[in-house]
Amino acid sequence: MTLRPIWSKVVAPCGILTYMKEQSKSTIKIAEAIAPVVSSRDIVDSLEAMIRKAHSTVVELDFSDVVFVSRSAAHEFLMLREKFSTDSVVFINTDATVASMLRTVAANRAVPKAPARAPKFERISAEELFAN
């Protein structure tokens, strides 16, 4: 899915009527539209409606003043961008923390990391737990 371009009627110098694609651009400030810490998937989902309403060929998701994006939210941002195509939804002004989270999740989507070895589950009784 890509954002629908807006075509304008243009009369070329030679007098022929033609159409030209308007390169309109909108910006959504994430810190204002959501919050400086973005945690939830559902809230990122709600951006989809805002992007559509923007009626622009390119929508910039501006992360200035965003201090943290959870892994879940980063995953949702990446899926959202894929949904519209990476040319029509772009991320701008990501600070080091936010950029690192987006890169980590994107890299893991491409090549999933082998899960780390966790300590084995030790099954004990409540008496043993509270006696320790």
Binding site: A35, V37, S39, R41, F68, S70, A73
Partner: peptide, 30 residues
Amino acid sequence: ETMFSSMVLKVLGASQASSAIHYPISELVT
């Protein structure tokens, strides 16, 4: 939630470790 985790960070005085503070709160709350 932003205000909650930011206040925790402030009270703790650990701005250098902000991601480590924000991460579990945001993931577990969501």
